[in-house]
Structures are given as structure tokens and as C-alpha cells.
Design a protein around this nucleic acid. Structure first.
Lengths: 203, 203, 203, 203
DNA sequence: GATGAATGAGACTTCATTCAT
DNA sequence: GATGAATGAAGTCTCATTCAT
């Protein structure tokens, strides 16, 4: 790739990205229903027609945004995921997920909008989700192989130990709970121990 | 209230309810975006204009439906909530929530659509939620007073111990986990013990 | 049908017809390309959305207009078609077609727009055309059975004897030929004799 | 003109022609309504902006194409038009017109799209048409001068004797008549005799 | 109270045309 | 000369809402 074509790709990506970020922002504020192509155009500072150079139609824009947001979330949550013991790895992910979920950033807010959509275009999204969060599944599977984690399906383990992280973050973000670091640490620990097989104390 | 006006109220309520049920069904299928007043009218078997005799506008219809659905969910989950020990009460609620969340009923499916909406009309909804789920909060508070439950905000306890119930139900409904009664019982038990303060074994 | 429902049907037809006539007028002026739904609405004196109560979309509007116009043309041309000898019947149709084609009426002008469209929705139109112009085909077939007309496919006979009627009308309408009744009579007679099998004069 | 500028002109003409042929092809397939500048550019293998170096705007492109197509049609139909007797000349033109009209070539198909357009830009087109088909008019005029052809305006003669050629070709192309060479020859002969002044047989 | 035809604002999308490169 | 990204006006169509019956 020569310099010229590199510049073209960068510009193209920057405009495509501009549009995605605009859509993300609007969704984070007004929900998916509140997303109009004209608004996206205004927010992105481009003409309405320009969006259609980068996305076939509104559906594709939303789908691509979902994929983009999912990737961002996964990257933030799974940063440094492979360092340390099982427990350290679990707690790092739990805490990062919590930190991330607490933010009122466009990315996080728009992320929540997608979570419970009626099942549409889900095949592609689900496959991407699987791929992106694979390290997390592997974490549970390692625990299962080592016999230290309760014998449940990784998704069930996720539901029990990880969902609370997001749920608490949401509650904090919405001002329903006062934020206190000590409580978070405790909650994280409780979640970890919830799926551990207890070791009988030797006396 | 005389007999005649009673009948009128009943009929009125039945038509109002017809419309709510129609809206619920449509939302459960196509999401909130897929809700058009004409569709609601068709599904309810009334004229489009009739809806406006019972609801000021579409927003109010959706708001009223949210409240209606929330009440139904609460009633289903909190049935017999006051019977038994703390543990029995917790587990009964957990299981009922799980059973409810597993269904693909219009009420449950439409319920999920509301959960993560952008914050709008939320004050009224939040107050209702508080009121309806008060027994659940009381359960946690009793446990806290008795010193058997981890010292966390009731909402945090809810996040840790109850959210997994819904999360698993969702995963099962979507076919991501195979359903196995033994696993559910285990998960329920893990959730309960997660928030318990462990009793030091006496020897 | 009671009086009330009759009125409803009449009103409905009148509005539907209003829209068709508006579309016809616009097409006669600016061609099919020049037809915008907003224009039709303006011309018909209704709101744009109203058109969609009577026609699914623009395609259907155009298709229905084609059918409507075709019916009008056929009715005008085949008026009294069954009276008299073969020759009289032929010449009456020829002359009526000519008279009709000479007009600059919206119906006639829009009719011409459809004649040479790229083949689309043609199945339904073709069937209707067959049905409406059946008397004309029968005329040729009778002539063939009686052995007085040249042994050609009715469509070929139509092309030879009838198309000139429309073609001349067009030329007159466009001001390319001066209109002279004697010439028309001659042309009509030439067309009729063109497809006749000449009778050998006995001496 | 030196060699270099000659090359430039040739190249320029070739690109201009490329664009015309692309437009012709698209119109033949999807009608004039289906013609978008982007499509023309794609089909011609040039950038959209390039079209505007050769044609002021879309209208001019269409106008130029009409003129171009008209010239092609005239050239095809009037090939060798001056050879032979009146009858031979007439029949040669009739048959060539028929052969040409039967084809589903882009040129012929797009030609039909123009024939019945609402009257716009017609002055220029009409003048060109006059000039191109002058030999055909002359043929009729010669016949009139010689007193062998019916005393009608050349356009009327054209309508009576030539339009059937195109009309039959169209019917054959569209599959409405089975093609049979003998019938064509008969039709051609009938058309010729239709405008002839019959010679009283001497006995 | 109920109806549903009508409205018209606003949504999505296309496409002729321009212009910086 | 050529490119094609960008523009934005204009088109089609939907739908919440009103109102005469």
C-alpha cells in the first residue's frame, strides 16, 4: 500500500467512524427509536446522502454499530485478561466490566440498547460475541477443568458471576446505589466465591 | 356506584385492557419500534381513533403498558412471597422469577423491551417498581437486620443474587443453554449462599 | 346495499377516481417520469398520504391507471361495434379510433405513454387488453371465416389495417398533417381494402 | 488538424460514444426512468463526473442519444434505398424496417422508448428526423408525381404503408405472433398495394 | 362512545451534479 | 482530462393524530 492509498483508507475510515460515533451518541441519548438518518448526518457533520456511501441502509448502519460497539466493549473488558491466577484474571475482568458499565459514555449507553432487542440480525452478532468473549469462556473452562469451579455451563457461570457486575454498574450509574469502593470489592469477591467449589477447611 | 355505571366501567376497562394486551403482543414480537397505532387497533379489534379515548397518545399507551406489565411480573414473582424462612422465601422468588423469565409469553417478552430504555418517563416507573418489589427489598433488609446477609445495599444484593436468575432464564429461552432442573437448583443455591455471611463451622 | 353504504361506495369511488384523473392529467403533460405522488396529491386536492389509502404504492397507481385508461379507450372505440356489415363495423371502429386518437385529452395522451413501456406488469395488462378488444379480434376472425379477408394472424391484420388509424391521428394531433375529412375517409377505405381479398371482376 | 489533435478527437469521440452506448443499453433494459448517471458511468467504465465533460446534463445526454439512435435506425433502414423501381425501393425499406424492428438490440429497444415521449425538445429531433428520412418522403413524392400512388400527404402514406411494418415487428418481437416469412412478404405486399392507385385491367 | 378516512409532518433513500484532487 | 466522494434537493412512503359522521 502506497502513501496515497493509505491516506485514502484513513480518510475513509475516519468518515465512516465519524458516522458511527454520531449514531452511537444519538442512540445513547434517545434510544434506537430516536435514531434518524438526518440526525446522524447533522451530528456527524456530513450530508444525509453521505451516510449511504458507507452503509447500505439504516439497518446496516445499526448492525455495523452493534459490531463496532461490541468490539470496543470487549477490548476494554478483556484488557490484560491473560495475566495472573484464575482468581486474578476473573476479578480483573469483573472490575473492568464494572468500571466500564458505570460510565455514561455513548459507547456504554448505546451498548445497553442492543442487549435486549427482539431477535433480528442476531446470527452475525452472536457469532462475533462468541469470538470476542472467547477468553472469558476459556477462563471458566479452565476453572472447570481444574475442578475448582462449580460444574455448570459457562454461560450459567457467566450469569451468576458476571452479570452482577454489569447490574451493579447500571444501578450506580443511574444513581440508585451510592458508590463505595469497598462494597464493589466485596461484591466482586462474593461473585468469585459464588462459583468456586468450597475447599473443606482442614483442622 | 350504581349497576349501570359499574357495567360501563367494566366494559371500559375491558376495552382498555384489550388495547394494552394488543400492544403487549405486538411489542413482544417486533419490539417497541415495531409498534404502530394501526397495528394495535387491528390486533385489538377496535378502530384507531378508539385508542385515543383510553390513552392520550402513543407515549402514554407505552407508559401505561410498562406499568401494567411491571405489575403482572411483580405479581407472578412475589406470589406467596411471605411464607417460610428467609432462605425459602428467597429461593421461591428466585425460582418464580426464573420460571417467568424462561417463558416466551407476550408479557415477558415485552417486559424485556423496557428494561434498558433510555431514561424517559422513568420517575413514575421507578416509583412503581419500588412499590411493587418492596417485599423483595424487605427480604434483604430482614436478612441484614438478622446479620445473616452480607452488608451491602439491597440493590447490590439484588444484583448479585437475583439478576442471575433472569440472566439464566434469558439464556435458556434463547436456546443458549440446555435446560436441566438440577443445574437450576444448584444455581439458585449458589446465588443464595453468595450473599450469606458464612457461619464458622463449630467443631 | 342500503343508502348509507351506497353513498360510501360512491364517495370512495369518487376520491379514487379523482386521484386517477389527476395522475392521468400529469402523465399526459409530463410523461410517466414526470409523475410524482406529491403532484398527484396537489392536482387531486388531497393529501399525499390519502393516495395510499386507495393504491398500495406508485406502481399500483400506475397499473390501475393503465387499466382504467385502457378501458376508457376500448369503450370509446368499440361503441356500437356490432352494428352493420363487416365493412361498416370495421370502418366505424377505424374512424372512432381515429377520432379518439386525434384528441389531446389527458386520457388519450396518457394512453400513448404506456404503449411502449419496457415490459413490466405486462401480464395483467395484456390479459385485460385481450378481453377488452376481443370484439375487434372477432371482427377479423369473422372476415377470415367468410374468406373475404387476407389469411393473416388477426394481430397482423390489426397492424396493417388499424395501426395507420392511430398513426395518422397522432400526426394530425401533432400538427404534422393538415386535417382534411376527405383524406381520412380515403385512408380508412384504403386500410379496409388492404386486407380484403380482391374479388376478380367478372365480365 | 495535426496527428496529435486527431488522436485526441478520436479518443474523445470514443469515450463519448462509450457513454452513449452505455445509456442506450440501460434504457433498452429498464426504460428511460431506469437511467441513472451512476449506472451509465458504471456501464461505460468511466467516472460519473466524466459524463459531464461530454454532455451538459442528463437531458442533453438523452437528447444526444435520441439523435444518435435515430441516425442509426435511419442508416439501417435506408441502406441501398435508391436502387431499383419504386416498388423495389419501397419493399426494401419496408423489409429492412421490419428486420430492424424485430431485433431486441439495445438500439432498437431504446428507440421505442423515445417514440411516444411527451413533447419536449422535439423541435430539434423533428428536424433531424425530417432530414434523415428525407429519402423515404422522396419515394412517396415520386410516386405521387408519377400518379401511381394515392393522393395523400406523404405522412399519411407513411402511416398507412410503413407503420404496419414496425407494428408487426413489435408484435413478433414480443412473441404475440409467430414469425413466418411468407406472411411477412404478404403483409409487405398488401401495404404496398394499399397506397397504389389500382390500374384498371385491360381485357 | 366508536369509527376510520383524511391529514401532513417527517422518515428513509436516491440521484443529478459539483469540485477538490 | 478524469475521478469519485460529497452534497442536498426531491422523491416515496409511513404513521400518529384528528374529526366529521
Amino acid at each position: 500500500m502506497n502513501e496515497r492509498s493509505l491516506i485514502i483508507v484513513v480518510i475513509m475510515h475516519s468518515k465512516r467512524n465519524l458516522i458511527l460515533r454520531a449514531a452511537e451518541k444519538i442512540i445513547s441519548t434517545g434510544g434506537i427509536q430516536g435514531l434518524s438518518m438526518q440526525q446522524v448526518a447533522n451530528e456527524a457533520g456530513v450530508a444525509a446522502g453521505t451516510i449511504y456511501r458507507y452503509f447500505k441502509d439504516k439497518n446496516e448502519l445499526i448492525l455495523e454499530l452493534r459490531k463496532d460497539v461490541l468490539s470496543q466493549v470487549a477490548a476494554a473488558i478483556l484488557q490484560d485478561h491473560q495475566i495472573g491466577t484464575l482468581e486474578e484474571r476473573f476479578k480483573r475482568i469483573w472490575m473492568k466490566m464494572h468500571e466500564y458499565g458505570k460510565q455514561a459514555s455513548p459507547t456504554n449507553l448505546s451498548y445497553e440498547q442492543y442487549a435486549h432487542l427482539p431477535e433480528s440480525n442476531t446470527e452475525e452478532i452472536r457469532a462475533l460475541e462468541m469470538k470476542l468473549f472467547e477468553p472469558l469462556h476459556r477462563l471458566f473452562e479452565e476453572g472447570l477443568e481444574q475442578g475448582v469451579i462449580q460444574p455448570l455451563h459457562p454461560r450459567a457461570l457467566y450469569a451468576i458471576a458476571m452479570e452482577p457486575s454489569m447490574a451493579m454498574a447500571r444501578a450506580i450509574r443511574r444513581g440508585l446505589i451510592q458508590y463505595d469502593q469497598k462494597d464493589i470489592t466485596l461484591a466482586c469477591d462474593l461473585c468469585w466465591r459464588a462459583i468456586l467449589i468450597p475447599t473443606t477447611p482442614t483442622n
